[in-house]
Design a protein around this nucleic acid. Sequence first.
RNA 1: GCCUCAGUGGUGAAAUUGGUAGACACGCUGGUUUUAGGUACCAGUGCUUAUGGCGUGGGGGUUCGAGUCCCUCCUGAGGCACCA
Length: 805
Amino acid sequence: MTSQYHPETVEKDAQSFWEKHKTFETNTDQPAKRNDNYYCLSMFPYTSGNIHMGHVRNYTIGDVKSRIKKMQGHNVLQPMGWDSFGLPAENAAIKNKSHPAVWTRENIKHMRTQLQRIGFAFDWSRDFATCDPAYYRWQQWLFLQMYKKDLVYKKNAIVNWDPVDQTVLANEQVVNGRGWRSNALVEQKNIAQWFCRITSYADRLNNDLQTLEQWPEAVKTMQSNWIGKSVGAEVHFQIEGKTEPLTVFTTRADTLYGVTFMAIAADHPLALELAKSDDKIKAFANRCKQQSTAEADIQTAEKIGIATPLYAINPINQEKIPVWIANYILMSYGTGAIMAVPAEDERDHAFATKYNLPIQTVYDNEGRLLNADTHIGMRQEQASQAITASLKKSKHGTEKTTFRLRDWGISRQRYWGVPIPIIHCPHCGEVAEKEENLPVTLPENIDYRYGDPLLKNCEAFYKTTCPECGADAVRETDTFDTFFDSSWYYQYFISQGKDGICSIKNDQWLGVDLYIGGIEHAILHLLYARFMQKILFDLQLSEVSEPFTRLLSQGMVLKDGAKMSKSKGNVVSPDTLIKTYGADTIRLFVIFAAPPTQDLEWSDGAIEGCFRFLKRLWTFVDTHYKILIKNDQQGAFDSLSTNTQQLIIDLHKELYVIERDANHIHLNTVASGAMKLFQLIGKLQKQEDAQGHLREAVSILLRVLNPITPHITHALWQKLQLGENIAMAEWPQADQRILHAANQITIVMQINGKKKGMVTMHTDASESEVVNSLKSDPATSMQLDKHQKIKKTIYVKNKLINFVV
RNA sequence: GCCUCAGUGGUGAAAUUGGUAGACACGCUGGUUUUAGGUACCAGUGCUUAUGGCGUGGGGGUUCGAGUCCCUCCUGAGGCACCA
């Protein structure tokens, strides 16, 4: 009688076994050695309501690595939690006339059930959401420490303002310059907001990238470019009739002779002053105010400008050049003004052509300065130095290093977020909330059905007393950017808030040994988390200065060539797949179908193949149960037939490759390697003298497969009485003795680098032995005889021999 | 526009350091078994004008030898600071 593979039963059994035995709960308090600990963290999900294939893929990768590490004897910490504050909850609340808190908590419940059904080895006892006051209390505490050290401050910044809804809009809520709900023309509004001084850390964030040896180069390059350190000069241009000079930053001081106009932002102080008395300039500035604030839009928008009556004096040659206002200059970037060199800069060139401004050639064909007075004939490097030196001498400029990175705006004029713990007192001004009063709790008894949800309208929240003088005062009603919530959560999974935000104890687990998430977080989230760890380091709460030791940027799950999304209608639901095939098949598919770092194109067909593989495995164990259950026979390797020996050698060779790939997180080839093992076992089963080796071979296969398909292997492991809990079994290793038993090797013969034949040799054969062997073989000797003169022979031992003719 | 990455059969892909291109699967073709089947098993499957030639997005280069290194172009994807 044979049993059939019923994934649902098998998976529920395994999952309740793990729960009952607390297989994946981790004790982080014991003084374990740092090297024995392995912290594997996958980016926690936003609580959108559904786990999608991208999550399944992300968490399966982490789960496989975690389970392998556990089998290799490490003390593994793999937690999961919820990124639960943010905009979609408010949108859903308005749409469904519910409350963001209700929506969020229901979503968490559902998503947790979904994840548990997939069988991830998470330590669920550490589960938390960023909207839990127990969590954000420490976030507010951290903010207060930063406030004390002047690492947070308030300044004005531009937001998208919807004049009809009277609310601030996110960039994605602005569609073609209009509010997505009101359809009103969106305006730029300048309001006071909280900022973190991440720019003070720019150099450290940039330099420490070099220490991140286990990060992908692409991510490091992107971060470095984002930080954008540039060494150049600040140049002061005198404005006719003004005392204050117009200051610009340039990395190309050598092009100063080619400056034909100046361009300033529409909200540059000079422009604002001109707009007061000049209607045309005012109109232009208003037009710029309706422009998108997104960098991509600014860079691709049509470049427009307006002349001003102002003239600047070029400090190098005293030439009089016009000052223009241009929409491609940003006040928030550098000094909000540039010197335009149309001959050397494409954007300036386009602008000059459009407005008929002169174009002054800077270099001749040989790269030597033209029309450059005393600097004539210099090359770029020399010119840069010489011109900067003259500017310095005449006090019109100085060397300067700037960063593209801007300070991090963390204020949101939104309800569903962590309250910023500041109080505004009429007598004392801005006052920090006292630490013992934390958390400043977000009120949840707000009726979402009636209009404006902002905390500004919630008297019960904002009315308070000043911690300094006791007078009536009001709370800050801005909440935190959710990037702030997710910039330190990896700490909380360890400490659970027991020793404050974190303690040196956490360092036993840090930096995170493997951090896995989408490439879309390559810059912002990862930069903010790195910044925050440096703050914790400077506050002496941690001795670790980088949060993530190893980073894996997983590719996206695509369907029809595009990211799965509701709006594109190309979503595949994990729930449906689990119903049809079970969790193990889905897990095997996402691991097998593509390397973790590459995008994964969804395929309905391929998943069937994975299901069939698991069914075959189940049937194989079932069919050969009587042989496999016997624990007492294993013939000596040397006494086996050549064929059987070769199969066992191949098995261990494959095992060797699997282990190497597992270490490199090339998990797709771990899966295909397991399939190869299964093929070999099938062949082994047909060898009469191999029966005594089948049990060991199957035990190896089950252990290799267990991290990927933990449920079916759990069931088969118990069925074959190989142990109680395969999750705790030892990861199998290739037998060195068997590996070295192989002594035949195939050498490829090439002529001029093209493959012309092969020959089987004993290992480490010498060049002359190979040549002799080739000459004695009719097929290869014929190839060699075609060519009279052999100019050169290249012999790569145990691999190939190449004849150059 | 700027920064980053990717492109290999009909499809997903494989290929330590430059050294047998296409492992492992999907699909397809033919066969065997079964009452039947969408099952299982076996064989074949890059293209081609086939003892040879051509093949890793296009073009060029370095090398005895290039999917892998360099230059250039094309296409697609991600990010661009308030989506997360």
